[in-house]
Design a protein around this nucleic acid. Structure first.
Lengths: 398, 398
DNA sequence: TAGACGCGTTCGGTTTTCCGAACAGGTCAG
DNA sequence: CTGACCTGTTCGGAAAACCGAACGCGTCTA
């Protein structure tokens, strides 16, 4: 029934949790069992792979499932949630279902019924399309790809917004190929490079194909006027725009809102670490084939380092790093130090306690910074109590 | 609150029914009270006119409300249902909400709360009509509307100042409709788009109607001169101006003071969050009606996010966001992330437990790497015991 | 001037983490 | 075949981490 499904179980009760895990694994699912809301928030916010559904208790020692769900849906579309609770109320059930949770069951329940509803829930949320991966394999990436493909079927102008190096150009090409104009040309016009040919030339060149105007947020005022006119009197070609979210804030409001009517936001690579890993594998395969003596592969540690890196430069940075690393690698495997040579400086081996303390210190300082030095809010940010923060600061000498 | 609304009440209990009818009619609704499921089925299947919502008890002498709802939705999407029940269960509530019923309340309930939820339900299903409230439902909006209507009664030129997207254009139309010239045309001239026709043409076109000059603060020097002249020798048409407060500071002083003689300032949307919510409800209803598979509604989190947002782009931004969100929504409910997709770009804040786990995971993998996969030596490298390493690997899923 | 609020600090109790001991295999050299 | 050595795993107790409650203190506000 659940063969190969990946589930997350959030449940503090040891007995209940164990029995659920046992039964779910019997059905073939891979289950990650989390006992605390804080942990669950982290695991669901930066998952190690695709998660099919979340089974979530409501009363938890450090919070409640409802808040967990609300926090998750604040920033990203949450995975389907199946809530299970002992002391639930009708009002709560209504609230949660209306908030977009998938289902809600009272304890105690019959295991068969629980499983049936879980299966229904997963089936309802299963992505219908497959298609080629342009962006990545994460939920966010697949969702974005699906939206781009849908937009390709229409004739409307589309704005693809995202950080530099997030893959906007790739998506524009994918959109073009998914549209009825795929036989026509795809012309790329970079608005941030005024030296290039005039916009009108690009329009003529695109003809019955697609015109992708990159960095539309960097247009000068005349360019903006021209674009407004272009949107009012559509040219022969299909229009697709690319731009950075912050840059778009500075565009004149009427044009911005016109563009935003069909905006597709590409989540940055840092929001989907699994894609960073996936992208590295692909880039590695390409670069490795060109080596005279191909490497055997990538170490686990290198993968972990890639997932943990923030990727401020997006896919472009990743690409540069992988190519350089494959070029410079010495051993038979691609090591983390090949990808991040700048870290060699701090090379001496450290024990687990040391790296843990350092990570904690850095995060505590960041939290204090973010909360203007208020310890109470910093502690809330960090998910620990005020006293624990104080204790840690004592220990770390802050 | 419910003025002019048509409601159907399905309730067998005489006391309860009477009290509900009394209160609902007090609020201005027209209520049709049915005591049997069979009757209700007929009345709802071939309604005598538009019905805004159905308030429905579950336990009925000749059937139950759930079956009634199911039977109705078998053929077409039913009107919004608000279920009220004394002997309800969580399972039933979940089932009904999942099936698309609007809301579900347990008896006994506080009448105020019941009314509030009924109003929300109706608003979410009711597309905006013409010529109703122009700005919103907040006190600020109401006051501004009153001032505009009063100004409409005079013949003087009026300056409507406010942020872009605050609703200046709507107010201008409202002013026109409230004036004695309502039978004449309303001509809009956008001063920020010089490409358009000349001002003199617009004056001629407006004739005995109203001329609305938008973005009057963006006029070029010649335009300012022309406008000064226009104010000295009033044309046949009524003059209304729109402009942004900061932009007006830069206008030449004599013209500015002339314009300011009868200025109405529109408070920005950010100053009246209730209006943002209200406006979203209306826009949502309109956009949702055009969907092939209408959404069930807006989640509470989405409402909260809308109220909290600063709306630098005013109503225009809100409109663009809602339309796009309804277009792109995937689940049965409109989520906060549909309205603010760019928020996935926000680097997710990590709790201390998360960064600690992340750091540990990376170091453990590095140690295993360095020790060729021998756990014992890796544990020694990390400065922990073999069992602890095993336990950590379990917990981190390695 | 009283109250609300946030901070530093201590304390007792609960939970988790960590470790060593132990046991059942598995491998490999002798 | 046998013993040395390693691994995966469980168990119980010691150590720590963590939390909430509480107290005194300064600061800010009504």
């Amino acid at each position: 029934m659940l063969t190969g499904r990946r589930l997350v179980l959030v449940e503090d009760d040891a007995l209940m949790g164990a029995s659920l895990v046992q039964r779910l694994e019997l059905e073939g699912a891979r289950v990650q069992w989390l006992r605390q809301a804080g942990r669950a928030l982290g695991a669901l916010r930066s998952p190690q792979g695709h998660i099919d559904a979340v089974v979530c208790d409501i009363a938890l020692p450090d919070g409640d499932g409802e808040a967990l769900f609300a926090e998750l849906s604040r920033t990203r579309p949450p995975r389907p949630f199946l809530f299970i609770t002992g002391r639930g109320s009708i009002a709560q059930a209504v609230r949660l279902i209306q908030a977009g949770a998938g289902d809600y069951i009272e304890k105690p329940f019959a295991m068969d019924q629980f499983l049936a509803r879980l299966v229904t829930l997963i089936a309802a949320a299963d992505p219908p399309g497959e298609g080629e991966a342009w962006l990545g394999v994460s939920d966010l990436a697949r969702r974005t790809e699906r939206r781009v493909a849908e937009a390709g079927a229409t004739e409307r102008p589309v704005l693809i917004s995202g950080e530099p190096g997030a893959g906007k150009g790739h998506l524009a090409r994918g959109l073009h190929n998914a549209s009825s104009r795929r036989l026509g040309p795809l012309v790329v016009h970079d608005a941030s490079r005024p030296s290039g040919s005039a916009l009108s030339d690009a329009i003529a060149e695109a003809a019955d194909g697609t015109l992708y105007i990159a960095a539309v947020d960097r247009l000068d005022p005349e360019g903006e006027m021209a674009l407004l006119e272009l949107l009012d009197t559509p040219p022969a070609c299909r229009l697709v725009f690319g731009g950075a979210p912050e840059g778009l804030e500075a565009v004149r409001p009427d044009l911005r809102d016109r563009l935003r009517r069909s905006e597709i936001t590409v989540p940055p690579l840092s929001a989907r670490p699994e894609d960073a890993d996936w992208l590295m594998q692909r880039l590695f395969a390409g670069a490795n084939a060109r080596r005279s003596a191909p490497l055997s592969g990538i170490t686990e540690a290198a993968s972990a380092a890639v997932r943990a890196h923030g990727w401020p430069g997006g896919g472009r940075e990743l690409r540069a790093r992988v190519i350089r690393a494959v070029d410079a690698a010495e051993g038979p495997w691609l090591q983390a130090t090949d990808l991040f040579p700048e870290r060699v400086a701090e090379a001496p081996w450290r024990t687990l306690a040391e790296v843990r303390d350092e990570a904690e210190r850095a995060q505590i300082l960041a939290a204090l910074d973010r909360s203007d030095g208020h310890p109470a809010t910093a502690a809330r940010l960090l998910g620990i109590s005020r006293t624990t923060l104080w204790e840690k600061m004592q220990r770390l000498g802050l």
